[in-house]
């Protein structure tokens, strides 16, 4: 699987570390325990398109949000996690 790092270009998956679901969002510190449980443990795990976090540890050390199809492994988009997090912060 080759993931096109927005900074480094396309690289094999062996350069990356996978974390998982990028659609869950860390609750505020005082959120109820159900919210924390859902954040840490529950996953949609769809058999289709999914957004997920990958770390380009052997490259530029950027966290990336990768949209990928779980059935075909086709990669639909890649974006820097930091940019998305900042945009999310602005939207919130």
């Amino acid at each position: 699987m080759r993931i096109a790092c927005p900074f480094c270009g396309p690289r094999g998956s062996e350069e990356y570390t996978y974390l998982g679901d990028a659609t869950v969002r860390r609750p505020e510190g005082d959120a109820p325990s159900e919210a924390w449980f859902a954040y840490v443990y529950l996953r949609d795990n769809p058999a289709g398109r999914h957004r997920e976090l990958w770390y380009h540890g052997a490259g530029c050390r950027s966290w990336l949000v990768v949209e990928r199809d779980m059935r075909s492994h086709d990669i639909l988009s890649v974006a820097p996690a930091r940019d998305m997090a900042l945009a999310r912060g602005r939207a919130a």
């Binding site: 570390t17 974390l19 860390r26 976090l53 770390y55 540890g57 050390r61 950027s62 966290w63 820097p80 996690a81 930091r82 997090a85 900042l86 912060g89």
Partner: peptide, 18 residues
């Protein structure tokens, strides 16, 4: 060492980019 480094980058880039 490697894991903590990755974790800190995660916290910074994804959780607290501000």
């Amino acid at each position: 060492a490697v894991r903590v480094s990755q974790h800190l980058e995660f916290c910074h880039q994804w959780l607290w980019p501000e």
